[in-house]
Design a binder for these strands. Structure first.
Length: 151
DNA sequence: GCCAACGTTGGC
DNA sequence: GCCAACGTTGGC
């Protein structure tokens, strides 16, 4: 089993939005970065554990624990002409973008990026590295355990 | 709103 | 295949 951190803009889908979804589950559509896509398509398994992270907002940080609830399948928005995520180069026969489903396990207290930076144990986390923009990053099991310990 | 960092695009 | 230009991300 692997561990991940997945960024979501709260204006788009906050942890409370996720909690209100049927089955507390959301399709993680809209990823248009190949590295992030490859993580979902090639590595994520049902049951993988996820840190749900609010990005691009007033208080960025971890706000929930979640898990992968469905293996990657073609992102439906790539075929939708009216979608912001429409990709003219993608076809149902040769889809380019994939997404998993993510289910909220539980909401947690906000662990801000500022707080995360205070722990030497977490200084190697991808999300804390300068210039990091990747919306999906692997989390070391040691880091996962440490974070569970401070919730 | 700023801007550094990074990814993608496309002309050559 | 190079690389300048452009677009996006996301903390601040």
């Amino acid at each position: 089993m692997r561990y991940w951190l997945m960024k979501s803009e709260p204006g788009d889908c906050s942890v409370d939005d996720l909690a209100a979804m049927p089955g507390k589950t959301v399709a993680w559509y809209g990823v248009r970065n190949y590295q992030a896509r490859n993580f979902m398509r090639d590595q994520m398994k049902v049951g993988d554990q996820v840190l749900f992270y609010h990005s691009n907002c007033a208080e960025p940080g971890i706000t929930g624990l979640a898990e992968v609830s469905r293996l990657a399948y073609p992102d439906q928005t790539q075929f939708d002409r009216n979608s912001h995520y429409f990709d003219p180069k993608a076809t149902p026969e040769t889809p380019r973008w994939f997404n998993v489903d993510v289910r909220l396990v539980k909401k947690v207290r906000l662990v801000s990026i500022k707080e995360l930076r205070t722990y030497p144990e977490l200084e190697r986390m991808r999300v804390l590295q300068k210039g990091n923009r990747l919306s999906i990053t692997p989390v070391d099991p040691i880091e996962w355990e440490f974070i569970l310990g401070i919730l």
